[in-house]
């Protein structure tokens, strides 16, 4: 029973931030001409709505808020990556925390939890739309037709299980690797903390850090977007009856 309290606390804090800010915007919103921040929030909403409309067949009122939650929450958690790696742990150490993992998406628990929730939803809608029989039939007959039943079962099972796994591991891997690179770049200056080498290593660290930061802005957005789109696509596949 290990509780990764840092992960839980930061992710919930970011989720709360999202809900509070979004709720305030929604409360003060008008259906007339929207002001600055409302406009921004609405453009995100519209972006998500477009994605859902493009890749989701049929209508399900849960999909759009789910996609919005994933996109914004994952983006916010990924964004913690852009805060200088040692800053929050340092502040934590002043408060008496010996160890602090800042980016919740570098914790496999977070990404797999989200992937599993999505997996649960796909299972639920698969059974709801196709019926339990229909869903099981997909396992029996799906890739190769009815003459290769055992192979079909194995193939479809792998396919179904690979969806949440790849979903969770992709986000985790990208974020973890990104954080690791930030740590390595941060170590550059630290390794030469004493001595004349600092003159070379310190500017190099600044330049590398900046480059990786700029690149990472793209990565965190892209990963949040991929997670969202794949969720929509998986759920859309669950909603189509004939496969």
């Amino acid at each position: 029973m290990t509780w990764n309290l840092d992960t839980i606390f930061i992710s919930i804090a970011l989720g709360a931030l999202m809900v509070v800010v979004g709720g305030r915007v929604a409360r003060n919103a008008t259906d007339g001409v929207p002001g600055g921040f409302q406009n921004f929030v609405e453009s995100i909403l519209e972006f998500v709505q477009t994605q859902v409309k493009d890749s989701f067949p049929g209508h399900n009122p849960l999909i759009a808020p789910l996609a919005l939650t994933i996109f914004v929450w994952v983006w916010l958690m990924n964004f913690m990556d852009l805060i200088p790696v040692d800053l929050l742990p340092l502040i934590g150490s002043w408060l008496g925390l010996p160890y602090l993992k800042v980016v919740p998406t570098t914790d496999l628990n977070t990404t797999l939890a989200m992937a599993l929730v999505v997996f649960g939803l796909t299972l639920f809608y698969n059974i709801k739309v196709k019926g339990l029989g229909g869903y099981l039939k997909m396992f029996l007959f799906h890739p190769f037709g009815k003459f290769a039943m055992p192979a079909n079962i194995v193939m479809t099972a792998i396919e179904e299980v690979a969806k949440p796994l790849s979903l969770g591991l992709r986000l985790f891997g990208n974020m973890f690797a990104g954080e690791l690179v930030f740590l390595l770049i941060a170590l550059l200056g630290g390794a030469a903390a004493l001595g004349a080498g600092l003159l070379i290593w310190f500017p190099l660290q600044v330049v590398l850090d900046l480059a990786w930061l700029l690149f990472h802005i793209l990565v965190i957005t892209l990963q949040a977007f991929i997670f969202m789109v794949l969720t929509i696509v998986y759920l859309g596949m669950a909603h189509t009856t004939d496969h």
Binding site: N4, S11, T69, N109, V117
Partner: peptide, 24 residues
């Protein structure tokens, strides 16, 4: 993988509900 997984799943589910209710 720890019990954090379940905590995060719960948090995620709640967050979806909140986002739908308050924002979306």
């Amino acid at each position: 993988i720890t019990v954090t997984l379940f905590a995060q799943m719960l948090a995620f589910g709640l967050l979806i509900w909140f986002v739908n209710k308050v924002m979306w």
